[in-house]
Write a protein that binds this DNA or RNA. Structure first.
Ligand code: MN
Ligand code: MN
Length: 557
DNA sequence: ACCCGACACTCACGC
DNA sequence: TCTCGCGTGG
DNA sequence: GCGTGAGTGTCGCCACGCGAG
């Protein structure tokens, strides 16, 4: 069982309150040690509120922003007037009446007509045309940098009431501790009730949770704040000093930090701050950061420096994407630093096919080629990664959803939390070995079919159910030899993140000969991506039939 | 499993 | 007047 | 013309109602 976390029925008009209280209760009981005394007592005070007040509070928490006009709150299910519930929330410090707000916040709350009316005096000074857009009005007003004012001071003759929600940081923190991320939210409960999502039931105990230390939660939130500022357009140089220092004791957070630095470097580079970009990228553990770092050095003409770093990077490439990138880079650099260019590993050339097709009105190139190649004897499917990933996800279901400590901690996982950790496979080695061993006999077919039946519809990071219909599954099991699947799955397991993409667009089955071939479609102006090349070359090396189909459009006359 | 990832499409460069 | 994008809610 | 490196856009429930333009 998943602890005692259940989703409230949507027949309950206050379903959202029930879900919210489920989360708060779970966090308060099992993560209490990660909360401060103040936070715990603040949460305790929820219980002294009336049900209507709690429900309204939850409504506000679920909505975006922290400022709300009473006229925009319409919740008949509360059973009492919203203003009454608001009074109660304000009395207990959950909200603040008639708060001070900056002019841009005011703009977000008022319609154009209201802005024109409320800000008539200010706008008159700006000399704006009567029909100026909201954006223009705001930029002009911002020039004047007016001090924040209370809502009723901005707009004295309003009939409305404005409230500010407090303690939003606490609610975000709770959501983060519960889900282990800020992407998921209260609405996940609803999506389950609606049947849009069905999650695998993995047993987990109350002690399995996303965070073990408050300090880690703080780091997460700190980095998230940096990310938000970056997205808000703040200069990266201003954000840089606020990024927490490297800490390899938590690989999960360190990889998040790496991604943040990657993005910060991108912004810095774009704005011409090369030194900052270099600093950010060299401190980032992101898979692509080192290459970006090297290419910037190259652009700056610091060839020798780049060459030396590239040499050492080559000894420990961060995945084969980087290895491929390093090879290209060093081929360019070699001339500049007067070194022998790296040996060009002899690559088998990838078989090509060229088609000239009438351009379909709406459908994509892939569909056009599919239609052209499809026949009774050779059914073609447009599957990209979904077929191989799906077969892998089905065969390895028990390993992927194994209840390892820390892998699952709430009922809404599409994959184990440590899927992209370095030691993901090794922690489950015996389980994966067992799954792959089933490929040594026909047993894998039964296992895959059984899982397909038992788990159908349950969300998994590897199984896209709509793409994996029974006929497609049967064709695949019939036409793809177990030996091929084993090779392919072994490659997947070598790097689950990098190798789960880049598979060719189409698969053509030849049921009579129990064989298949994979076809990557390229329309005019498209080209093979690196990871696509890597899959194609892997297949060639293992005698799996692949080709690239280049399409030209027929001249219309 | 983090405003992402996985595609194709687009523009821009240096040789 | 209609179209588009966004926030909301089940 | 090529090979290469970047950046952009789309989609991930779906129906609704509002506000901006
Ligand atoms: Mn494709
Ligand atoms: Mn393609």
């Amino acid at each position: 069982m998943n602890g005692r976390i259940t989703t409230a029925s949507l027949d309950d008009p206050l379903y959202y309150l029930a879900n919210f209280e489920t989360v708060v209760h779970w966090v308060a009981t099992h993560h209490g040690d990660l909360l401060t005394y103040d936070e715990r007592t603040r949460l305790d005070r929820l219980q002294s509120l009336s049900q209507a007040a709690r429900a309204l509070l939850v409504r506000l928490v679920m909505r975006s922003g922290e400022l709300f006009r009473l006229s925009k709150l319409n919740y008949p299910e509360l059973g009492v007037p919203e203003s009454e519930a608001l009074d109660e929330l304000a009395a207990d410090g959950w909200t603040e009446d008639d708060p001070e707000l900056a002019i841009d916040e005011l703009f977000r709350l008022l319609t154009v007509a209201e802005c024109r009316h409320a800000l008539a005096p200010i706008l008159a000074d700006c000399g704006l045309p009567r029909a100026a857009s909201k954006k223009a009005m705001l930029t002009d007003c911002l020039e004047l940098a007016p001090a924040p004012r209370r809502f009723t001071d901005w707009w004295p003759d309003t009939d409305d009431r404005l409230v500010a929600l407090h303690h939003m940081a606490l609610f975000d923190r709770i959501r983060l501790m519960f889900f282990g991320n800020l992407r998921q939210s209260w609405s996940d409960f609803v999506l389950v009730e609606l049947g849009h999502h069905q999650y695998e039931t993995v047993p987990f105990t109350p002690d399995s949770r996303a965070f073990q230390q408050r300090e880690a939660v703080d780091r997460y939130l700190l980095m998230q704040a940096c990310r938000d500022r970056l997205e808000g357009g703040e200069p990266p140089a201003d954000i840089w000093p606020d990024i927490p220092a490297r800490d390899d004791s938590n690989p999960w957070l360190e990889s998040r930090r790496g991604r943040l630095l990657m993005e910060l470097g991108r912004q810095a580079d774009r704005q011409g701050d090369a030194e900052l970009a270099l600093a950010a990228w060299s401190d980032s553990g992101h898979r692509e950061a080192r290459l970006r770092h090297l290419r910037l050095l190259e652009r700056q003409g610091r060839h020798q420096e780049a060459w030396d770093i590239a040499l050492s990077a080559q000894a420990e490439p961060r995945g084969d994407g980087e290895a491929q990138g390093l090879e290209r880079l060093m081929r360019r650099l070699a001339r500049k630093v007067d070194q022998a260019p790296p040996e060009r590993p002899k690559r088998p050339s990838i078989p090509e096919m060229h088609l000239t097709l009438p351009q379909p009105a709406a459908a994509s190139v892939e569909w056009a080629v599919l239609q052209d190649l499809d026949s009774e004897q050779t059914p073609v499917c447009y599957v990209e990664n979904t077929l191989i990933n799906g077969l892998f996800g089905l065969l390895c279901w028990p390993a992927l959803f194994a209840p390892l400590p820390g892998a699952f901690f709430h009922p809404f996982h599409i994959a184990p939390a440590d899927l992209h950790r370095e030691d993901f496979v090794s922690r489950r080695q015996a389980l994966f070995d067992d799954c792959l061993a089933a490929l040594d006999s026909d047993e894998y077919k039964d296992r895959i079919r059984r899982t397909w039946g038992e788990k159908h519809g349950i969300t998994s990071a590897f199984v896209a159910w709509p793409a994996l219909s029974e006929p497609v599954l049967e064709l695949a099991l019939h036409c793809i030899p177990a030996a091929d699947l084993k090779l392919i799955f072994q490659r997947l397991l070598r790097d689950l993140r990098d190798h789960r993409s880049g598979l060719p667009d189409l698969i053509r089955f030849h049921p009579e000969q129990a064989r298949y071939d994979l076809i990557e479609v390229k329309g005019p102006g498209d080209r093979l991506q690196d990871h696509q090349i890597r899959w194609l070359e892997f297949c060639l090396a293992h005698d799996i039939a692949v080709s690239v189909c280049y399409v030209r459009w027929q001249e219309a006359d």
